[in-house]
Write a protein that binds this DNA or RNA. Structure first.
Length: 403
RNA sequence: GUGAGAUUAGCUCAGUUGGUUAGAGCACUGGUUUGUGGUGCCGGGGGUCGCGGGUUCGAAUCCCGUAUCUCACCCCA
């Protein structure tokens, strides 16, 4: 038997119902916030991700589905959504057009990782990106949108926020942190030594207890923000307070992708295992210019749909459509014709076999039909059919033509 | 990439110190005498016990390898 590749799942039946329910719900919220759908290719030039996500990240370093295509182009399946949207934004010259551009997207992402709960090699994200607004109100707007989406799906969460500083205050802070960690280099774990070279800020969320004890006295970025970043962060907290969105400040919250600055946030769930981040995002004011666009402030987020799946509370399924059954072999033809006619406007389920009443009604219940009718010799003789409403348990008689 | 646990019917799982023909519940399917409600009753189909080796008179059971899943590390949505 040929099986799907490791970490790549089929989505069908109830999973598909949940999946599309989430996308429909999230899309509706995004549209209320004035965002427009954008679809970008699954395959992009590899350098796009090297320049945006960053070569130091694990994603680019070892998790990309990368290959040379038949035209000798170095390409890869997208590992995340933001880079492609930014590329499209620049390619369509929207950076030069000025103004505000707001997009949402959803689709498959690919990372060559060891699969576990909430982590797949092909997974799906719903995300939004907002270009052209440097106001912290837009950062808050993102957080409120995620909160609205999660609320609409009945999903509980904890919100963690932090500020990563900007090109003004971050580099100075990073140097100080490197100095601090270097001084206790003999005591920290191997991973942290590695992080000093690759991405020093990441030492802050090291899970090693010993490291955490050492870092308790490390300089905190939150205390070393420049005036602009500091006042924005204060404002962000006020907006969230004013709108009754509770949050925790996590000074160790570090986004894994290089392009983030200033506001960083993560929505986590305590009910889905160790891969607990269900949504994450933040500001990335420098990314457009890194990708050769005109400098444009931007902010966005992405949600991991697979991680949300088991948390989504679905609405009660409603009875819908018709079930038509034949009592005799020679009325099956009529049932098929009636179904064909009725399907112009409604969902219709039929069985090609003649059965008795009880068996047909079992079938009707199984497909959750709202109306039930059965065609036997009585109906053919009288030219009428009896329509039974399975919800209200009422019946009405119609002529075959009226049906 | 590292470590641990799992894999038996479509699904969830039993299966004794290795011993006849591998079971249950749910699901599926047929019947319940061709006309009014699902839940009742009676039947039926369905398994290369993940795959490949080995030990043994004999393996679902013990050993080795391998694939996949799960959990954790790493990383991230």
């Amino acid at each position: 038997m040929i099986k799907s590749l490791r970490g790549m799942n089929d989505i069908l039946s109830e999973d598909y119902e949940r999946f599309t329910y989430f996308i429909d719900t999230a899309s509706a919220v995004a549209q209320k916030y004035g965002f427009h759908f954008i679809q970008t290719p699954l395959l992009e030039e590899t350098s796009l991700f090297k320049r945006s996500v960053g070569e130091s990240s694990d994603i680019v370093g070892k998790e990309m589905y990368q290959f040379i295509d038949k035209g000798e182009n170095d390409v890869c399946l997208r590992p995340e959504g933001t880079a492609g949207v930014v590329r499209a934004f620049i390619q369509k010259k929207l950076d030069k057009a000025g103004g505000v551009h707001r997009f949402f997207y959803h689709g498959s992402m690919f990372r060559y990782e060891r699969p576990q709960k909430g982590r797949l090699r092909q997974f799906h994200q719903f995300g939004v990106e907002s270009f052209g607004i440097d106001s912290v109100y837009e950062d808050a707007n993102m957080i409120m949108m995620v909160a609205d989406i999660l609320l609409a799906c009945g999903i509980g969460y904890r919100l963690q926020i932090n500020s990563l500083g900007d090109s003004n205050c971050m580099p100075t802070y990073r140097d100080n942190l490197v100095k601090f960690v270097t001084e206790c280099k003999d005591e920290v774990c191997e991973d942290c030594i590695r992080r000093l070279d690759t991405n020093p800020i990441r030492v802050l969320d090291c899970k090693n207890d010993k490291c955490q004890t050492l870092y308790a006295t490390a300089p905190k970025l939150i205390n070393n923000l420049c005036d602009n970043c500091d006042s924005d962060f204060t404002k962000l907290k006020k907006i969230l307070d004013d709108n009754n969105i509770s949050y925790e400040i996590d000074t160790n919250l570090v986004r894994g992708l290089d392009y983030y600055s200033k506001t960083a946030f993560e929505f986590v769930s305590d009910d889905i295992g160790s891969q607990s981040a269900i949504a994450g995002g933040g500001r990335y004011d420098r990314l457009v210019e890194f990708l050769d666009g005109r400098p444009t402030p931007a902010v966005g987020f992405a949600m991991g749909i697979e991680r949300l799946m088991e948390l989504i509370k679905m609405p009660e399924p409603k009875k819908e459509g018709y079930y038509i059954g034949a009592m005799d072999e020679d009325t099956v033809d009529l049932v098929v014709s009636l179904a064909h006619k009725k399907r112009k406007t409604d969902k219709v389920t039929i069985d090609y076999k003649a059965k008795n009443f009880k068996n047909h009604i079992k079938g009707a219940d199984k497909v959750n039909a709202k109306y039930f009718c059965i065609i036997g010799s009585n109906e053919v003789d009288s030219g009428t059919i009896t329509l039974k409403d399975l919800e209200n348990k009422t019946e009405q008689t119609l002529s075959l033509k009226e049906f």
